[in-house]
């Protein structure tokens, strides 16, 4: 079954994104777009004329997408979670490189913010991996899943993970990396047509990737809860600046993760 999830990952991601828009709209007493809106967007983007700035820029987006897919595959197919996190890091750096490779101010600001996002969330994900290793004795996601859920043994890491989910899925208050009203999508701004489509689908993959971690932490219930919570928080808060975001992660998220880990080993 997992193989199908991995092979069709962008498809599932599209559904999740569609569902999310629906839920958020209901929270705001709106109708919202149809569930399949992400796929309609996809079809429309395919028909657009594609223009690119230079080959490297376009291909790095493709590299980002493929590498991200590999990362999703590693975490879902019982691979090593550290590996998944680091391959995801490689993907992110390819995106950053793409952002820097064109002389566009929004693209550069977006890439810089992407780097700050990495600095914020990566330590927490890695500490979560270490905590799983301490509890289950394995780095493999299959063995970690067999160890049951971690609601009771890692509650603080759960909170830190929620912060990471907000950041990775571009939710307020930690949505500085894309921040459409401010930097018009950051790195995305210089893409069009098919390559923008690739970035759009990569966003689906980011959802699958981070929610796979949530699933490992607390099963389906946690995924559902985090999904609703993330959208509630998104609706209820305003965006923080990049500096504030980093401060929140280092002053709250990281200490929580460390405390939890200390509790596990002491």
């Amino acid at each position: 079954m997992m193989v199908w999830i991995v092979l069709l990952a962008p498809l599932w991601g599209g559904f999740i994104l569609g569902a999310e828009r629906k839920i958020r709209a209901h929270m705001q007493h709106r109708m919202g777009p149809p569930l399949l809106q992400p796929f309609y967007d996809m079809a429309k983007l395919m028909q657009k004329r594609t223009t690119i700035i230079h080959s490297g820029h376009a291909l790095l987006a493709l590299g980002y997408f493929v590498t991200l897919w590999i990362a999703v595959g590693v975490v879902l197919l019982d691979g090593n979670v550290l590996w998944a996190i680091f391959i995801h890091l490689l993907a992110s750096v390819l995106l950053v490189t793409a952002g820097f490779s064109v002389p566009s101010i929004f693209s550069h600001v977006g890439a810089n913010r992407e780097l700050l996002a990495i600095v914020s969330y990566e330590p927490i994900l890695l500490l979560l991996g270490v905590a799983w290793y301490v509890s289950s004795g394995s780095w493999e996601s299959g063995a970690i899943a067999l160890g049951g859920t971690y609601w009771t043994s890692m509650p603080l890491l759960g909170v830190a993970l929620l912060m990471v989910v907000l950041l990775k899925t571009g939710k307020s208050p930690f949505d500085m990396a894309h921040a459409h009203q401010e930097i018009v999508g950051g790195v995305e701004v210089e893409y069009s047509g098919i390559f923008y489509e690739v970035l759009y689908m990569a966003r689906f993959l980011e959802y699958i990737f981070i929610y796979a971690f949530v699933f490992l932490w607390g099963g389906v219930v946690a995924v559902a809860l985090f999904f609703v919570l993330a959208n509630l928080i998104d609706n209820a808060t305003a965006r923080l600046t990049p500096a504030q975001t980093v401060r929140w992660f280092y002053a709250l998220g990281l200490p929580l993760a460390l405390l939890n880990l200390l509790g596990l080993v002491a």
Binding site: R49, T50, T51, I52, I53, H54, S55, G56, A58, L59, V102, P103, S104, I105, F106, S107, V184, V189, E190, S192, G193
Partner: peptide, 16 residues
């Protein structure tokens, strides 16, 4: 990147 010049039309940066 080095050899293949992708066959798409080129644009200058949009920068919104």
């Amino acid at each position: 990147v080095a050899w293949l010049r992708l066959g798409f039309d080129r644009a200058t940066v949009y920068g919104c």
